[in-house]
Amino acid sequence: MLLTTVGRRQPGAGKGDAVLALFVSHADVLPHTSVTVTHAGHGTVIASLAHGVPLVALPNPAADQPALAEQIERRGVGIALAGDTATPDHIAAAVHALISDDSYARNARRLAHAISALPGPHGAAAVLERIAGSARPPMGRTNAPLLPSISSAATAPPLAKPLTPVRRRSARSGTRGLPKRSR
Results as ranks from 00 to 15, higher is better:
R8D: 06
R172K: 13
R176T: 15
T33F: 12
V77R: 07
A154W: 08
S149G: 02
K15E: 05
A117N: 02
S170H: 11
A50C: 08
N143H: 13
H90S: 08
R9D: 03
V95T: 12
P61S: 11
T33Q: 14
P138N: 03
A57M: 00
L146C: 08
R183A: 07
R181A: 14
D64L: 11
P137V: 04
Q65D: 03
V127S: 07
A94F: 07
V166L: 13
A50E: 12
H96Y: 10
R168W: 08
H90N: 11
G174E: 10
A97E: 02
S134A: 15
G78W: 08
A124D: 15
S100P: 02
A132R: 06
I72P: 07
Y104S: 02
A40L: 13
V37H: 12
R106V: 03
T44N: 05
L55D: 07
P145C: 11
T164Y: 08
E70V: 09
E129M: 15
L55N: 07
L49K: 06
I72F: 05
A18G: 02
A126K: 08
L68A: 07
R74N: 11
V6A: 01
L81A: 04
S152N: 11
G14P: 00
L178T: 15
R110S: 07
L2D: 13
D101E: 03
T175C: 14
T5N: 00
R176P: 07
P148C: 00
G174Q: 10
F23G: 04
R169G: 08
R109I: 05
G76H: 14
H122L: 06
G83T: 08
S116P: 01
K15N: 01
H90D: 15
S48I: 13
A92S: 11
P119C: 02
A63Q: 13
S103P: 05
P138K: 02
S48M: 14
